[in-house]
Design a protein around this nucleic acid. Structure first.
Length: 425
RNA sequence: GGAGAAGUACCCAAGCAGGUCGAAGGGGACGGUUUGCUAAACCGUUAGGUCAGGUAACUGGCGCAAGAGUUCGAAUCUCUUCUUCUCCGCCA
């Protein structure tokens, strides 16, 4: 959510930004919200004045009552009726306009960074950089489920029986590998100076509606029956939720956090659970990074965050590339975003394994995350990025570390988490 | 899950038979006096947040866990929710 004062001051900037995102249908919203905002402020001023008047009269009544002049007080009281009606009407309008303004403000996209490439949709995303040589081996790489099954590491028949599609049993060395990757990711981020968190895996409805839009909520979140609780879709929900309506000291920034959680997603919508395997599933685990910082620091943090993810994958010998979201593909809340994609030797293309976002102050404004400054408070900037999310990440891992003989090489950093094994299979 | 008690500003805490209460009193923090320095003592300052109006000084609204209600008027009364503490029950 952007500052409505920006729209008052520089509506053309906001319009240009909407054009850059190819959301031409939203252009009329700017004038609409300017008009509604004017009406809101008019109604608020009227209400404020009426309330002020009422407060004065109430005080007079109080004084009279204390002096025992009951009759005079009653006289004034009887006159107050008209005003009460006016106030009621004015407050109704104030509320109505306020809500309309809010509704539109939620639809107006955040101002994107100057460096964001202009493009209509994901086909126009831009490759920023490649890391590592995308190798195509001279033997056939099986589908990841087949690799896992050959290693006796996955049981999809059982999970279909117990839970349906989109779930899995991992077992044996593959399950261990899964945990090893997460443990390594945790320690990797701790070494970068991040504070490790295990957050709540369920959050209340008001937190959910704070951190995402209604449609996202419908398409992603599992609700606990009979409770005002939802299973989190990512630990970012809990981690950002923890900052709602707080004022942070400047000295406490930047907050650099790395959180682990299982993630639960309904995956209703464009890409449902359509494919056998662990690429798109209802349940996975993820190590995440979250940064809350001063506005002037967010650009630098953005670059650091995606570079950490790249470094992590490279340390496991997985080639990656960084793909920048073009203006049209960027979610409305984001200032800038890149996807980290891992190389799939089987498909001979890159696929998404993480997403790094700078939300500027939009998320903070919406949630009331402020910084106590010397000259008043201001909104923080928030960023988040995936460190790693297995089991999807295991697809890249298995394909890139598969030997011709069917064994899987364990890269050096993982070995201490795998009982010293140099390979499995 | 059951039964009680409570949530007031940075912290502790008064107010709760509705009206000079935006809120006593401490403590802390900050500034000053004294002092070679520190401590102590004394004097003083510090109410957060947010919205609106105004070029500005400033003015006004909201605000005593959150929300709703009663009332001319609510920290104070009613209801709902949340949180904390104590006891009982249950449980990794």
């Amino acid at each position: 959510m952007i500052d409505i004062r920006l729209i008052r001051k520089d509506p053309d900037l906001v319009r240009e930004n909407i054009k850059k995102k190819f959301q031409f249908e939203k252009l009329p919203l700017v004038d609409e919200v300017i008009e509604l905002d004017a009406k809101y402020r008019e109604a608020k001023l009227r209400s404020d004045n009426l309330r002020s008047e009422r407060n004065t009269i109430s005080k007079q009544i109080g004084t009279l009552m204390r002096e025992g002049k009951r009759e005079e007080a009653e006289k004034i009281k009887s006159q107050i009726g008209k005003m009460a009606k006016q106030l009621e009407e004015s407050e109704r309008l104030e509320k109505e306009y306020f809500e309309k303004v809010q509704e539109i403000m939620l639809q107006i996209p955040n101002i994107i960074d100057d460096t964001v490439p202009i493009g209509k949709d994901d086909s126009e995303n831009v490759e920023v950089e490649r890391f590592g040589e995308p190798v195509v081996p001279d033997f056939e790489i099986p589908y990841h489920v087949d690799i896992m099954e050959r290693l006796d590491g996955i049981d999809l028949d059982s999970s279909r029986k117990t839970s349906g599609s989109g779930f899995y049993y991992l077992k044996g060395n593959i399950a261990r590998l899964h945990s090893a990757v997460l443990s390594y990711a945790r320690d990797f981020m701790i070494d970068k100076g991040f504070t490790y968190y295990i957050p709540p895996f369920m959050i209340r409805g008001n937190v959910v509606s704070g951190v995402m839009s209604f449609t996202e909520m419908e398409n992603m979140m599992y609700k606990i029956e009979g409770e005002d609780l939802y299973l989190i879709g990512t630990s970012e929900h809990s981690m950002i939720g923890k900052f709602i309506d707080t004022i942070l000291d400047e000295e406490s920034l930047p907050q650099t956090l790395t959180s682990y959680s299982p993630c639960f997603r309904k995956e209703v919508g464009a890409h449902g659970i359509e494919e056998r395997g662990v690429y798109r599933i209802h349940q996975f685990e993820k190590q995440e990074m979250v940064v809350v910082c001063k506005p002037e620091d967010s650009k630098a943090w953005f670059d650091k965050l995606w570079q950490y993810a790249v470094e992590f994958f490279r340390s496991l010998d997985i080639p990656v590339r960084v793909l920048e979201c073009c203006s049209g593909d960027l979610a409305d809340l984001k200032v800038k975003s890149v996807d980290v994609e891992a190389w799939s030797p089987r498909q001979q293309k890159y696929f998404e394994v993480g997403s790094c976002s700078n939300l500027g102050d939009a998320q903070a404004r919406r949630l009331g995350i402020r910084i106590k400054g010397k000259d008043g408070n201001y909104f923080a900037h928030t960023l988040n990025n995936t460190v790693v999310a297995p089991p999807r990440m295991l697809i890249a891992f298995l394909e890139n570390n598969l030997n011709k003989d069917g064994t899987i090489r364990i890269p050096e950093p993982l070995r201490i988490y795998m009982g010293g094994k140099e390979f499995i299979g």
